[in-house]
């Protein structure tokens, strides 16, 4: 147990520190790079928690997200001024964080304990490996048992990409007659 918990805590502390730096630093470029650190830490945690599919996807997704954000940030001047009166007081932040931690402690004692999931449906999916022919049970759940879900998610991706096209079109826009 300890051989999983120690790296897990270390990686999650790394992610938390990187997230705080990403939110609080002034320079937008370093902020974006710290966000990339959070994503790669998440990929390592996925690898640690026996989710290789997620680790593979997370690494590439994080690369593309960081490239997108860098392209948006670089060469655009940032005139945002963060004044001190906008940021909340340290005591207030401490109180809120304390309240969140206490509430999480109380709530998560009702949840299933870590490393002992219920697996009511997962057990059945694992045992039906011969039904689908897929050896990777994640793919079996994704594309066979819960394929309707995947169809819906494909629709969401399609809608988001079409939204990008609609926002960035150059033809047919008022005041742009080229």
């Amino acid at each position: 147990m300890a051989e999983v918990l120690l790296p897990l805590y270390a990686l999650m502390a790394f992610m938390l520190i990187a997230a705080i730096i990403a939110v609080e630093t002034r320079d937008l470029l370093s902020s974006v790079l710290c966000l990339g650190a959070v994503g790669f830490g998440l990929a390592l945690v996925d690898l640690l928690l026996k989710a290789p599919d997620l680790a593979l996807t997370q690494v590439v997704v994080e690369i593309i997200a960081v490239v997108l954000l860098i392209r948006a940030v670089v060469a655009r001047e940032d005139t945002t001024e963060e004044s001190l009166s906008d940021t909340p007081h340290v005591a207030f932040v401490g109180m809120v964080v304390g309240a969140i931690v206490i509430a999480a402690f109380v709530c998560f004692q009702q949840l299933v304990p870590f490393a002992k999931p219920l697996m009511t449906m997962g057990e059945a999916y694992l045992r039906s490996g011969e039904l689908t022919g897929a050896k990777n049970q994640v793919t079996a759940v994704l594309l066979d048992f819960r394929a309707y879900d995947t169809l819906g998610e494909a629709t969401v991706i399609f809608a988001a990409i079409i939204g990008c096209y609609a926002l960035l079109r150059t033809r047919g826009r008022i005041g742009n007659r080229r």
Partner: peptide
């Protein structure tokens, strides 16, 4: 048994 969840909520 539940401390990883708490760190997750902090993130």
């Amino acid at each position: 048994e539940f401390f990883p969840y708490v760190l997750c909520v902090l993130l």
